[in-house]
Amino acid sequence: MKVSSVHLCITIISFIMIYSGFSKVINIYEFINNLYYYKHIPESLFLIIGYGIPIIEIFIGVAIWVPNVRSKIIIGYQLLIGSFMVLFIVHFGSFMPQGCGCFGSSQGETISFLTILRESLFFLPAWIYFFLVQSEKYRKHMLKI
């Protein structure tokens, strides 16, 4: 049961990252244009962020399947989600005409508590993964005693 739950968490994270990365790549210029609405991002970084974020997301989505680096990749995933959360908190109440940009362009939305709550749900598969892995390590350690 735990092995399948761990694989489900990995699959969910992988899907989120690959889908998010490719949805930005497909409409890269819209994504870069969407960065304009995040007032605290300097325009000089738009191209770096616009091309870098999708590459990082796709990398995380693929690299999470490598067992030796999985925990580090999941920590990177959490840092990325956390940085998006900080960006949303800083821009709380701002209207984004093309949505937040997480999964490409969408309908306009105002960043609210619901936006932040929705974003925080992306932490769940990583937290569940670490809980399952740590509980399994603890169980194995107790069996040795």
Rank of each mutant, 00 (worst) to 15 (best):
M1D: 06
K2P: 00
K2I: 11
S5H: 05
C9F: 07
C9H: 08
C9S: 12
I10S: 04
I10K: 03
T11Y: 10
I13T: 05
I13Y: 02
F15Y: 13
F15V: 15
I16G: 00
M17N: 15
I18G: 03
I18S: 03
Y19D: 04
Y19Q: 05
Y19M: 14
S20W: 02
G21E: 02
G21S: 08
G21L: 05
F22R: 01
K24C: 07
K24A: 05
I26C: 02
I28G: 01
Y29C: 01
Y29D: 14
N33H: 13
N34D: 13
L35E: 10
Y36G: 02
Y38P: 09
Y38M: 11
Y38T: 10
Y38Q: 12
K39E: 13
H40E: 13
S44P: 00
S44Y: 08
S44L: 11
L45P: 00
L45N: 10
L45K: 06
F46M: 04
F46E: 02
F46C: 03
I49L: 14
Y51Q: 01
Y51E: 00
G52H: 04
G52V: 02
I53E: 00
F59I: 07
I60T: 04
I60M: 12
I60K: 05
I60W: 03
G61L: 06
V62L: 15
A63I: 09
A63C: 13
I64N: 00
V66N: 11
V66W: 11
P67Q: 10
P67H: 06
P67A: 08
N68R: 15
V69I: 15
V69M: 15
V69F: 15
S71K: 15
S71L: 06
K72I: 11
K72Q: 12
K72D: 06
I73V: 15
I73E: 08
G76F: 09
Y77W: 09
Q78N: 14
Q78G: 12
Q78I: 10
L80A: 10
I81F: 05
S83T: 14
F84E: 04
F84C: 09
M85P: 01
V86D: 03
V86W: 09
L87I: 05
F88L: 14
I89A: 13
I89N: 06
V90T: 11
F92T: 09
G93E: 10
S94L: 08
S94A: 12
S94R: 08
F95P: 02
M96C: 04
P97T: 06
Q98S: 12
C100V: 12
C100P: 00
C102S: 09
C102I: 03
F103P: 02
F103Y: 14
G104W: 05
G104L: 06
G104K: 06
G104Y: 06
S105I: 08
S106T: 11
Q107P: 00
Q107F: 10
G108V: 05
E109W: 01
T110W: 01
S112G: 07
F113V: 12
L114W: 11
L114K: 11
L117V: 12
R118V: 04
F122N: 07
P125K: 05
P125E: 07
A126W: 01
W127G: 14
I128C: 09
V133P: 04
Q134R: 12
R139G: 05
R139H: 12
H141V: 01
M142N: 13
L143H: 10
I145E: 12
